[in-house]
Design a protein around this nucleic acid. Structure first.
Length: 635
DNA sequence: TTTAGGG
DNA sequence: CCCTAAA
C-alpha cells in the first residue's frame, strides 16, 4: 500500500541518533534511484555566513571590495552560464519522465540572518529587499544545477546587502514551474558571507558584529564556535530570539514525531524497541522519543551552548567574564602562538533528498525543504573537520599538529556538518548490504514527497505566510556512501563555526509554520457495524462512559482500527443519534433497540458517575428498566 | 497514555 | 475522524 509505505519511510525519518531507520525496502528504494552521477549529488551544503574578523580599517575595505561592480557582474554571468550548461541535459531527460515527480537534491541554500526580514519579505519585494536567496538544486541524474543569481549588493552603514534574484526561465527549467526560493538572507549583521556556488562570493560587512573570532592553536573548533554566534552586541536579544525559536522548533517538531509514532505500525516500533534494548515496545517507544527529545534535540544542543559559554570563558576570546558575550573582546588575540584565521563559506551537511511532484507549489517545495532541514537539524549536529579531504577524527590534536596553521594553505581545510554519531547506539538495519553503517559517516537523505499538495502552483504560496498549503514530507533515513566530502576550496577567514550552525538552526523553525503534513493522513472511514455498536453498548452498559480504555479492551481488544477514542466518539454519536428523529439519522440504521439501550445507559451513567466504575456491570435496576431514560435522574 | 470535548 | 488540553 502506497500510503503505508510512505508512512514507513517517513516514520523512519531521520537517521540521527536514536531515531529508527527506515525499513530496508524503503531505503533501498532510495538507493536504487541513484545513478552514477549521484555521487556528485553530494551532501547539501549549508551556506554559511562566516566572517573574517579584521582590524576595522582592513575589514571595511575588504568588504567593500568584495562586491565591487566588476566582481559582481562576473559573478552573475558565471552563475548564469553554469545554469545553462547544467540544466540543458536535465531538461531533455526530465521530459522523458513525464509530469511525474521531480527529485532534487538540495545542494546548498542560504539562510537568513534576520528573522524579521525573513518573515516580512514579500515576493514582490525581493528586488529591493536586502537579502540573499540562494538555492542549489540538482536532479537525481545530477544534470541539473541551478542557482539563484546574485543580483547586487548595496551597503550602508556597514551592512552588506546581497540582493539575489531568481531568474525565471533559467532555474525554473529544473522544476517545471516557478522559481525556487527557499528564503532570503539579510546580511545586516553578517560579517561575511560565503556562497559556494559556481564561483564563491564572500561578503564581508558590518564588522561591528563579530560573528567570527580568533582561535588559539589549542582551541577546538566546536567549542570556540559555540560561543561565537552569540557574541554579538545584541547578544541578549539574539539569544532570546534563539530561545524563542528553539521553542517554536520544539513545538513544530513534536507533532511530527507524534505522527511518526502514530503512523508506525506497532510492529515496527516493537522492532525498534528491541533494537534499542528495550524489553517492552511501549516503553521502548517512549524512551526513544523522550531520550531523543531530551538528549539529542534542539534543546540539548542549546543547553550545550549555554553550558560551554559559562564553563569555558577562558577558551574563547569572545566570552566575557560575566558570561555574556561582547564584540569587543573578540579582537583580542591569544597571547601565545600563532593564530589561525579561517573563513568558512559553507558547510557540507548530510544530503537532503527531496522529491516533489511537478504540480507542487513552490511554496510547498520550500516547506518541504524546510522540513527536511528541520528534521536534520533537530537531531543534533556536530562539526567535522577535514584536512586534505580527510576527516580529522582526533579532537585532541592541536591545529598545528593537524596541519591547520597560519602557514598552511587553509584551502585544504574543510568542515562538515553531521549528525552526532556518538549518539548513535547501534545502527539499525545494519544488515542491509546497501547501506554502509559507519556511524561516523552518517549522511542523511531525506525524501519529501508531497502527494496531496497537488494544487495549482500559486505564487501566493510563496509569499503569503497565512496561505500555506499543506505539504507532504517524508524523511527517509539514509546512510549514503558519501562519507567525506570535498573540503570547500575557498574557505579562509575567521571561524565562527557554530555561529553558522546556530543561525541555521534558529532560522529553520522560524519560517516553518507548523502545518500538518500529509503524513498524517486521515484514516479511512470505517463505519461501525451493528455488531460493533452492540458490543460497544454492551461494554458501556457495564463499564460506564468514562472508561474507554476498558471498553476498548473488553469489547474491541482485537479491533486494532478501533481506538478507545474511536469508541468514545462512536458513543457520542450514538447518543446523538438516539436523541434525534429517525428521519434525521444517516448511515446504516442502528436498531432502535440498541439506541434505546444507549440512551438508557447514557442516562444511567450520567447519574452514577464513578459510582460503579470500579466494579463490573452495574446491575442497576433503574437502568435496566429504562427509567433513567425518561427522567435522566432515576435514583 | 487516557479522558473529555470541541472541530 | 481529528486534534488537544488536561489529567
Amino acid at each position: 500500500m502506497v500510503f503505508k509505505r510512505k508512512l514507513d519511510c517517513l516514520s523512519v525519518g531521520f537517521d540521527f541518533p536514536n531515531v529508527p531507520r527506515a525499513p530496508r525496502s524503503c531505503r533501498r528504494k532510495v538507493v536504487n534511484n541513484k545513478t552514477d552521477d549521484d555521487t556528485q549529488i553530494c551532501a547539501i551544503e549549508l551556506l554559511a555566513l562566516a566572517g573574517k574578523l579584521l582590524q576595522e580599517s582592513e575589514s571595511s575595505s575588504a568588504s567593500s571590495n568584495a562586491f565591487d561592480g566588476t566582481n559582481h557582474d562576473n559573478f552573475g554571468k558565471e552563475i548564469k552560464q553554469e545554469q545553462e550548461d547544467k540544466c540543458k541535459p536535465f531538461k531533455s531527460e526530465s521530459s522523458d519522465q513525464g509530469n511525474s515527480t521531480e527529485k532534487c537534491v538540495v545542494n546548498s541554500f542560504s539562510f537568513p540572518d534576520n528573522e524579521d526580514n525573513m518573515e516580512r519579505t514579500p515576493m514582490s519585494d525581493y528586488k529591493k529587499i536586502p537579502g540573499l536567496t540562494a538555492v542549489g538544486c540538482k536532479n537525481m541524474n545530477g544534470n541539473c544545477d541551478f542557482y539563484v543569481k546574485s543580483e547586487g549588493i548595496t551597503g550602508e552603514t556597514g551592512d552588506v546587502n546581497v540582493n539575489t534574484g531568481f531568474e525565471q526561465g533559467e532555474a525554473t527549467d529544473c522544476l517545471g514551474d516557478g522559481g525556487l526560493i527557499t528564503g532570503t538572507c539579510n546580511l545586516e549583521d553578517a560579517t561575511a558571507l560565503g556562497v559556494q556556488f559556481p564561483k564563491s562570493v564572500r561578503v564581508v560587512g558590518d564588522l561591528k558584529s563579530p560573528s567570527s573570532m580568533d582561535m588559539t592553536p589549542n582551541g577546538s573548533f566546536a567549542r570556540h564556535g559555540n560561543h561565537t554566534n552569540l557574541g554579538r552586541r545584541d547578544d541578549d536579544e539574539n539569544f532570546y530570539s534563539y530561545q524563542k525559536l528553539s521553542n517554536k522548533f520544539k513545538s513544530y517538531r513534536s507533532p511530527t514525531i507524534r505522527k511518526i509514532r502514530k503512523s508506525l505500525s506497532s510492529k515496527y516500533w516493537k522492532q525498534v524497541s528491541r533494537d534499542f534494548g528495550h524489553s517492552r515496545a511501549d516503553v521502548g517507544v517512549k524512551t526513544l522519543y523522550r531520550k531523543r527529545k531530551s538528549c539529542y534535540g534542539f534543546n540539548a544542543w542549546q543547553r550545550e551552548i549555554i553550558y560551554k559559554r559559562k564553563r569555558s570563558p577562558d577558551r574563547s576570546s569572545v566570552v566575557t567574564s560575566d558570561g555574556g558575550l561582547s564584540s569587543g573582546s573578540v579582537s583580542k588575540l591569544p597571547e601565545k602562538g600563532d593564530t589561525v584565521k579561517l573563513s568558512i563559506k559553507s558547510f557540507r551537511i548530510p544530503e537532503l533528498f527531496i522529491e516533489v511532484p511537478e504540480t507542487a507549489t513552490v511554496g510547498s517545495l520550500k516547506r518541504t525543504v524546510m522540513e527536511a532541514v528541520s528534521v536534520l537539524l533537530s537531531g543534533g549536529i556536530r562539526v567535522g573537520v577535514l584536512m586534505h579531504g580527510k576527516k580529522v577524527r582526533d579532537d585532541r590534536k592541536t591545529l598545528s599538529q593537524t596541519g591547520i596553521s597560519c602557514d598552511e594553505n587553509l584551502d585544504n581545510l574543510g568542515f562538515t556538518l553531521e549528525p552526532s554519531p556518538s549518539k548513535v547506539p547501534v545502527p539499525l538495519c545494519s544488515e542491509d548490504p546497501n547501506v554502509p553503517t559507519n556511524p561516523t559517516n552518517l549522511s542523511e537523505r531525506s525524501a519529501a514527497s508531497p502527494m496531496l499538495d497537488s494544487g495549482i502552483p500559486h505564487a501566493d504560496d510563496v509569499i503569503s505566510s497565512g496561505n500555506i498549503v499543506d505539504s507532504n514530507l517524508e524523511l527517509v533515513p539514509y546512510q549514503s556512501d558519501i562519507s567525506v566530502d570535498e573540503p570547500s576550496l575557498d574557505s579562509r577567514a575567521l571561524v565562527p563555526l557554530p555561529t553558522e550552525e546556530v543561525k541555521a538552526l534558529a532560522i529553520v523553525p522560524l519560517n516553518q509554520k507548523p502545518k500538518r503534513t500529509e503524513l498524517a493522513q486521515r484514516r479511512t472511514r470505517r463505519p461501525f457495524s451493528v455488531t460493533e455498536v452492540e458490543a460497544l453498548v454492551q461494554a458501556v452498559e457495564e463499564l460506564g462512559t468514562g472508561r474507554w480504555r476498558d471498553v476498548k479492551l473488553r469489547a474491541f481488544e482485537n479491533a486494532d482500527h478501533r481506538t478507545y477514542v474511536d469508541l468514545k466518539d462512536k458513543w457520542k454519536t450514538l447518543v446523538h443519534t438516539a436523541s434525534i428523529a429517525p428521519q434525521q439519522r444517516r448511515g446504516e440504521p442502528v436498531p432502535q433497540e440498541l439506541l434505546d439501550r444507549v440512551l438508557r445507559a447514557y442516562g444511567y451513567w450520567s447519574q452514577h458517575q464513578g459510582k460503579h466504575q470500579a466494579r463490573g456491570a452495574p446491575k442497576d435496576p433503574d437502568m435496566n428498566r429504562g427509567r433513567a431514560l425518561e427522567s435522566g435522574v432515576s435514583v
